[in-house]
Design a protein around this nucleic acid. Structure first.
Lengths: 239, 239
DNA sequence: CGTTATATTGATAGATATCAATACGGGTGG
DNA sequence: CCACCCGTATTGATATCTATCAATATAACG
């Protein structure tokens, strides 16, 4: 989802300080901690699994580079994608609360994550992690609700437009271009996320392209007319 | 959603002690607290609003009797119902995390809730509320994910079947009949929850009735063939 | 007992799923 | 380095389900 496959992401801590998500901020502070505490990182290849449904949750993860998807499998049914995560965002929150991951997370490209272990070894006074996580959990819940609206309302074109607007904003917030990026997920992932079949995803992308709102070349995507996209997505703005 | 409109619910604490939801258990213990602390209760009439989107979140609520729905309004769009709550369940969790309610909650019938104030005045050692709430938040997230699956997969009949199976199980878990109860919500609420139009809800109820799986009389509902319902809802069992 | 909200039922149109065939593209191995 | 191959994506034709529109029926409430 970065502008180019092997591009290095912008300096994260700088970005995170500006962002309003508390955990990344806190993480940045942790890494500068006087005790010199450095969070363990994990490097993953495309397709590698960060955690699997049912795994014991050992912590949460902050994406440092790359992108992941998280999904659940409703009783041996087909996969349901519930979210995509780009650099600077947090993965694995549901696990924190109940101690066991309710879903899985898979790298969509070569990815690096920082691990926030569950048993906190840091100074809680300097960095009230519990509170931050509670806030993040609440946000995750909001996100899930917005996702529900996105996946159930409007036409296929509108859902796609809504998704792209959301993604665009997130890319922008993380220091990438908001109008030109690569969709790291397959059409099937997109379809699952938006409750559409892959053929419909294809056709809707073409439709938006025919409306001169996008330029699509496989997974490479350029937003030509952001305002037009917004008008194509009337109800339920994601942010 | 109780068996009859004005019926008194079963003794709650007994039920809650058996249930695995930690907060109700904790609440029961709180009410028996040596200090004699009694949680404030609030009695509501049908249609009354417990909290509104944007309100400061002063706490979470445990349903003691009656039923509520919670919903969000995506930027002045139409209402999106995100959950129904019967006696013994918890309402208002998203608010806890971020301090402000992301959605609204409305009583579907005359209802009484116990209020768990945000600023805890109780003994945290005896009752680690924070931890319990974190767990509940995690569960709420899981619930949201299952809801997404329910509202986006399968035919109208299957969604209805899935919803009724879920509700049946919850009623049973709370000490009510699992096969005979009253749907407290309107068809419009049901439609919003399941991403269907009210006409489709009506027709699907009739369809399930014609299949001898249900008996529907307005909002009164009797499940005739639980096993048949389960088969009518193949993928994505809710629990 | 009337009035309004809610629910049912029917006819039809429209959007997306489904089925099928083809094209593209990235990765592997010769 | 090229060719092959499999996963992925596109495109077309058609079927199907649900939304929509419209009319009526029923229930709730004052």
């Amino acid at each position: 989802m970065t502008a180019a496959p092997a591009e290095t992401p912008p300096a994260l801590c700088a970005t995170w300080d500006a962002a309003d998500t508390c955990l990344p901020c806190g993480l940045a502070r942790l890494e500068r901690h006087p005790a010199g505490l450095l969070l363990p990182h994990r490097r993953m290849r495309r397709g590698e699994v960060l955690f699997r449904q049912g795994d014991a949750a050992t912590g949460v993860y902050v994406v440092r580079a790359g992108a992941l998807k998280s999904s659940i499998c409703a009783s041996d049914g087909p996969e349901q994608v519930v979210g995509f995560h780009v650099a600077g965002e947090v993965v694995g929150l549901q696990g924190w609360a109940c101690g066991r991951h309710e879903g899985s997370a898979v790298a969509l490209e070569d990815t690096e994550v920082a691990v926030l272990p569950r048993a906190g070894a840091w100074d809680d006074a300097a960095f009230p992690l519990e509170k931050a996580l509670q806030r993040l959990l609440g946000r995750e819940l909001e996100r899930a609700h917005r996702h529900l609206v996105l996946a159930t309302r409007g036409t296929a074109d509108q859902r796609l437009a809504g998704f792209l607007l959301d993604l665009s904003q997130r890319m922008l917030a993380r220091g990438y271009s908001g109008t030109e990026f690569v969709l790291r997920m397959t059409r099937a992932d997109l379809g699952s996320y938006l409750a559409l079949q892959i053929e419909t995803v294809s056709r809707s992308l073409r439709s938006l392209q025919d409306q001169r709102l996008l330029e699509v070349d496989g997974r490479r995507l350029r937003i030509r007319d952001l305002e037009g996209l917004r008008q194509a997505f009337p109800a339920a703005a994601l942010h």
